[in-house]
C-alpha cells in the first residue's frame, strides 16, 4: 500500500528522536512525568490536525483555516453562558457537574455550527475552501473578541470540568485519552463506513464521484461540520488546561496542525490520508519540540527542526502521496 513506506519512516523517526532525546538528557527525558506532560500538550493540536485532515481528504483544495477561531469561539460562548447562568451559585458537586455538562454541550454545539457554516459556504455556495475558511476564521475571531472585549474569560477551577484538561486516568492524561478515542473513531469511520469510502473517492476525483452517484455536496457539508466539532473539542481541552477562554489563544497552532497532517501523509489535493500516519507525525513533532526545550535549546530551533523533519519525510519516503498526478501505466 502506498502509505506503508511513509508509516515506516514515521515509526523510525519516532524511535530515533526518542533515542537522541534520552541520550542528550542522560536519561532524564524518559521520566514518566515528561511523557505525561507531552501527552497533555499534543491532543489539542492533534485534534485540530484531524479536523484539517478530513477537509484535505475531501479534495477540491480542502482545508479549514478557521479551526482555531471556532475552537476559541465555542468555549468563549460556553464560558460566558455558563458563568452567567451559574453566577452566585453554590460550589456544590452537583452544581459543578451541571456547569461542566452544559459547558461541554454548548461548546460542541457552537463548534458544530461553525463547521456547518464552513460546509455551507464550500458545498452550497461553492466558495474555494481556503477563501471560505479564511473569511470565517476572521469572522469567528471578531465575534469572539467582541464578546470578551479582549481579555480572557476566566473559567476558574470547576470540578469535574477542569479534569478534562488536567486530570488523568491510571496515569494517562485525559486529553490524551480523548485524542486516542477520537483518533480511533475517525479512523474507523474513514476505513469502515460508507461515508469514509465516499469521502476518499470524492477527494480523489470529484467529477467521477458525482457521475457515480455520490452526493458530493452532502459529503462535503458533513466533513466540514465534523471539523468544526473537533475544533470545539480541542477548545474544550485548551480552555480547561488554562482555565480560561481567550479569543486569540493558540493562533500559532494552525500551521503546526497543517504540518502534522501533511507530514502524516495527507495529500493536500485530496483522496489520501490515514489517522495512524497523522498520530505518528504528531507524536514525532511533539517529542522533538519537548526534546529541544529539555536540553535548553532556543525555541526558534524547534521551527528549524520541524522543517528539517518534514523535508526528510518527503525526500526519504519518495511517496506518491506528495505528488498531485498519478502516473498512468506505460503502453
Amino acid at each position: 500500500m502506498l502509505s506503508d513506506g511513509h508509516i515506516r519512516f514515521l515509526i523510525i523517526a519516532n524511535g530515533l528522536i526518542l533515542l537522541v532525546a534520552a541520550l542528550l538528557s542522560k536519561g532524564a527525558f524518559l521520566d514518566p512525568y515528561n511523557f505525561q506532560s507531552m501527552a497533555t500538550q499534543l491532543p489539542e493540536i492533534g485534534l485540530l490536525a484531524i479536523a484539517i485532515m478530513l477537509t484535505m481528504v475531501s479534495g477540491n483544495g480542502g482545508i479549514d483555516l478557521s479551526v482555531i477561531s471556532s475552537a476559541n469561539l465555542s468555549v468563549i460562548v460556553a464560558a460566558l453562558v455558563c458563568k452567567a447562568l451559574f453566577a452566585g451559585a453554590d460550589s456544590s458537586a452537583q452544581a459543578g457537574w451541571s456547569f461542566s455538562v452544559l459547558f461541554v454541550v454548548i461548546a460542541l454545539t457552537v463548534g458544530t455550527l461553525c463547521g456547518l457554516l464552513n460546509g455551507l459556504l464550500v458545498a452550497r455556495a461553492g466558495y474555494a475552501p481556503i477563501l471560505a475558511t479564511l473569511g470565517t476564521q476572521l469572522l469567528f475571531l471578531g465575534v469572539a473578541t467582541v464578546l470578551t472585549g479582549g481579555p480572557a474569560v476566566i473559567l476558574g477551577d470547576i470540578a469535574p470540568l477542569s479534569s478534562i484538561g488536567n486530570g488523568d486516568l491510571l496515569g494517562i492524561p485525559i486529553p490524551f485519552l480523548l485524542f486516542l478515542a477520537v483518533s480511533i473513531g475517525v479512523s474507523l469511520m474513514l476505513s469502515r463506513t460508507r461515508f469514509g469510502f465516499r469521502l476518499y473517492l470524492m477527494g480523489s476525483n470529484a467529477k467521477a464521484a458525482h457521475f457515480a452517484g455520490i452526493q458530493t455536496a452532502t459529503v462535503t457539508l458533513v466533513t466540514y461540520t465534523i471539523a468544526g466539532s473537533l475544533a470545539a473539542l480541542s477548545g474544550i481541552i485548551s480552555s480547561t488546561r488554562s482555565a480560561s477562554a481567550k479569543a486569540d489563544f493558540g493562533v500559532s497552532y494552525l500551521l503546526i496542525a497543517i504540518l502534522i497532517a501533511v507530514m502524516g501523509g495527507v495529500n493536500p489535493s485530496g483522496g489520501y490520508g490515514k489517522i495512524l500516519g497523522l498520530a505518528l507525525a504528531g507524536v514525532a513533532l511533539q517529542m522533538l519540540s519537548s526534546t529541544l526545550s529539555f536540553i535548553g535549546a532556543n525555541d526558534f530551533l524547534k521551527d528549524f527542526m520541524w522543517g528539517l523533519l518534514l523535508l526528510l519525510s518527503i525526500g526519504l519516503t519518495d511517496s506518491s502521496l506528495f505528488k498531485t498526478k498519478p502516473k498512468p501505466a506505460p503502453s
Partner: peptide, 9 residues
Amino acid sequence: LTEGLFLTK
C-alpha cells in the same frame, strides 16, 4: 479518465 475512474484507487 476524468468522469469515471478513480485512477489511483
